[in-house]
C-alpha cells in the first residue's frame, strides 16, 4: 500500500509561499527528503505529521484524509513523528518524558505503557540513562529520546525531520542502523542535509527546492559528475549539488545538463 500520497499541495505563511505544488508518494521503506534550507521540507513534513493543514491540493496518509477529523485521529494513532526541534520537558527523566508522550498516544494502562516505554528506550540504546534528567543529556542522546518517542506503539508511518542533525560521525552511523531497522515493514520519511545519509539509507529520494519537487527517484538515478559532489538527475530534470552538510539545487528543469 502507498502510505503517503501528496498531490499538488501548496502552503503559504502570509506572503511567503512555502510550498507551491508538491507531488510525490511513498510506500514501505525509507524515503529521503532532500533539499536546501528553506526549501519547504519541514513544512511538508509537518503536514504529513498532521500538524499543519495544506492550503490546497490533496493529501492522503495511510489511505485516509487528514483534513477529516475522524480520519485524522485514525492517522495519528498509527503515526510516529520526530519534529525538527523536538521540545522536551527538561526536568523529566528520559523514562518520564517518553511515558508522558505515551499517555498522549493513548496508552492508558500503566503497566502496558511502561513496558512499551522500556521497549523503545531499549531500542535506541538509552536503557542505562533512562532515569537521568533530559537536561543532563548530550545532544546526541536527546535526539535518540526523540526517536524513541517516535516509535512508541509500533507506528506504521514514521516522520523524522532531520534526525541526524548535530550528531558526530560515529553517532550518525549508529543512527542509520537504527533508522534502517525502523524502516523494516514501515513507511519512513526522513529529511536530511546529509547526502551520505540518503545514499546509505534511502532506496528512494525526493528532492524539494523552492517549494516544489524537483527530483523523485532512486539515489543512483542521481548521477555524479566529475568531482562527485554535483549530481544530475538521469532524466536531466534537475542539477543538484550535494556536498557535506548542504544541498543546493543548481538548475531546475535543465534541458541539456551542462556541467558546473
Amino acid at each position: 500500500m502507498t502510505a503517503v500520497r501528496v498531490q499538488d499541495v501548496t502552503k503559504s505563511f502570509g506572503r511567503t509561499r512555502a510550498l507551491q505544488g508538491v507531488t510525490f508518494s511513498a510506500g514501505v521503506g525509507v524515503t529521503g527528503l532532500l533539499g536546501p534550507n528553506g526549501a519547504g521540507k519541514t513544512t511538508l513534513l509537518r503536514m504529513l505529521a498532521t500538524v499543519l493543514a495544506p492550503d490546497s491540493g490533496s493529501l492522503q496518509l495511510l489511505g485516509r484524509n487528514p483534513q477529516d477529523a475522524d480520519d485524522r485521529l485514525a492517522i495519528r494513532r498509527r503515526l510516529g513523528y520526530l519534529p525538527q526541534e523536538p521540545g522536551f520537558h527538561r526536568g523529566f527523566s528520559v523514562f518520564d518524558f517518553i511515558d508522558y508522550v505515551a499517555i498522549l498516544k493513548e496508552l492508558t494502562d500503566r503497566q502496558a505503557r511502561h513496558q512499551e516505554v522500556r521497549r523503545v528506550i531499549d531500542a535506541v540504546g538509552l536503557s542505562d540513562v533512562a532515569g537521568r534528567r533530559i537536561r543532563a543529556l548530550s545532544g546526541g542522546m536527546r535526539r535518540r529520546v526523540g526517536v524513541a518517542q517516535a516509535i512508541l506503539g509500533e507506528p506504521e508511518l514514521v516522520i523524522l525531520d532531520e534526525p541526524t542533525a548535530g550528531l558526530d560521525p560515529e553517532q550518525r552511523l549508529r543512527f542509520r542502523d537504527l533508522v534502517s531497522r525502523i524502516g523494516e515493514g514501515r513507511t519512513v520519511l526522513l529529511s536530511t542535509h546529509m547526502t551520505e545519509d540518503v545514499a546509505a539509507l534511502c532506496p528512494r529520494v525526493v528532492v524539494v527546492d523552492g517549494g516544489r519537487t524537483v527530483f523523485d527517484g532512486t539515489p543512483s538515478a542521481l548521477t555524479g559528475t566529475a568531482d562527485g559532489r554535483v549530481w544530475l538527475a538521469a532524466d536531466r530534470s534537475a542539477l543538484v549539488a550535494l556536498s557535506l552538510g548542504s544541498v543546493q539545487v543548481l538548475r531546475r528543469g535543465a534541458s541539456n545538463g551542462s556541467s558546473v
Binding site: 498532521t50 485521529l73 495519528r76
Partner: peptide, 13 residues
C-alpha cells in the same frame, strides 16, 4: 508554554 506542543498536536490525544 509547552515545549512538547508539536508532539502534542501529532498525537491522538
Amino acid at each position: 508554554a509547552d515545549p512538547a506542543y508539536e508532539l502534542t498536536l501529532a498525537a491522538p490525544y
